[in-house]
Design a protein around this nucleic acid. Structure first.
Lengths: 258, 258
DNA sequence: AAGTGGTCTAGACCACACT
DNA sequence: GTGTGGTCTAGACCACTTC
């Protein structure tokens, strides 16, 4: 070696640009909603090709820090106030309001709620659902209800509810309008009183379909909740999969210890 | 117009390549762990420049479907078995085992657990912590303990625990070894019996620091749990922030209804 | 040495938003 | 029309892995 320790290996130009922009955002120099310099301007400023500046912006976008808008520019993402789904959403006392938990939360935030019934069908259940509901995973043993939830016309979550076909067939559970107190009311008619629930939570990047339905921009993950309701006999009688957009959604669980 | 409706606007080449690969993965043609064709091979196969094929791979990587390994190739990501953190992790009965919940779960999965105490310091709390702990957010009102958790030497989660400095000062709570039953044992000595807890859950993309500590590959989000412990008087006495890597971690909550 | 992904250049044209 | 991001080309060199 001619020069034993001449210099540290520098990070690539794209990362250095990204780091500079990140610092500007974190220091408040670039506030939420502010427009970043254009890719061409960044390229000139740092003496690189446009693609390199573009890569820097992509890194920030991947980290969920900024959002590119075609034809307009790249903007610092606004910190979103969260749509909170609390563990009390399963509480029976919410029944009295006559509103579903989602409508209640939307009202609390001064937003209008809309729920689309996308489909209701007799289907073969996904493996994880079949396992939890205790039904065969290779025949059409469930009714699958898919709903989309909107707040102020913004899509917030995708919900798939699965019920035993043997119980639901021929009842209001296979109809769009399920009657008083919704599906839980009808399930009580069938002798299932919700006694305990289990929520299994994961996070992941959305599928292209979820990206489209939820209108997600790159760098926004989803929260997936696989929910199981157990009745007074400890039997699972309903399984739902909630897919929330993580940029505007949070979950909250209050529980006693021991 | 010469040809009124000659053809549909095709999706860009990069998306078409990505979709073809996605289909191959979902159909099982490309199994978990399988190696994708090299970027140069894909480019030739589809008659595009290498950058275009590369963009296709990037799209899949962003969706968490594949993982690029420098010098080796791009591989279909293995479905990870989850490290499950259940709501019983706060249960007092776990005390009897003498193991912390993390060690218990690791043992259950036949993995070796390691917990690094990264730092213990008297600090100014983050705003969300100050709010929940009921302490001033502009002075060094808390002790902050940062731990890193490993399973089989793989980093799994980053935990920051915050306690009131006024209570912790001069006690074992500011020491790496906190004595029997850990910090909760010492907090009981101070008269705080954990009675209820609240977990607030969000998902987001990791910061560069978290990416480095957790060894995350692109397209893997993190689960953030802001945990608050309340004592017999309903007073918050401990707040912790758990940052889990979402590719190997899940949460599970069992709770009674009403 | 050969093959792979990682970064970069210096252009080009297209699609979209704004005025 | 002008400026913006979105996509693409046809190269190049570097860093890492494998043989």
């Amino acid at each position: 070696m001619t020069s034993p320790e001449s210099r540290e290996p520098q990070p690539p130009a794209s990362r250095r640009i990204a780091q500079a922009l990140r610092s500007a955002i974190e220091s408040g120099e670039l506030r939420a909603g502010a427009k970043l310099p254009s890719e061409r301007a960044l390229a000139e400023q740092y003496g690189t090709a446009r693609n390199t500046a573009r890569e820097a912006v992509r890194l920030l976008s991947e980290q969920g820090l900024v959002k590119a808008e075609h034809g307009r520019g790249v903007f610092v993402r606004e910190p979103q106030r969260l749509f909170r789904f609390g563990s009390d959403r399963y509480s029976l006392k919410n029944r009295e309001s006559g509103l579903t938990p989602f409508r209640l939360e939307a009202k609390k935030q001064g937003k209008t709620a809309r729920i689309d019934v996308v489909s209701i069908a007799n289907e073969v259940p996904p493996a994880d659902v079949a396992e939890r509901l205790g039904v065969p995973g290779d025949v059409a043993s469930v009714v699958h209800r898919e709903n989309h939830y909107y707040a102020d016309e913004e899509p917030v979550q995708i919900v798939s509810t699965y019920l035993r076909w043997s119980e639901a067939e021929g009842t209001l559970l296979t109809q769009p309008k399920t009657g008083p107190n919704g599906i839980y009311g009808r399930l009580e008619d069938l002798g299932h009183v919700m006694t305990t629930i289990r929520d299994e939570i994961t996070a992941r990047m959305p599928s292209p379909h979820e990206t489209a339905v939820l209108g997600l921009s790159p760098g926004v993950p989803v929260l997936e909740v696989l929910h199981t309701s157990f009745d007074q006999d400890g039997e699972a009688f309903e399984v739902s999969r909630y897919v929330h957009r993580a940029d505007v959604t949070g979950l909250k669980y209050d529980l006693p210890v021991q």
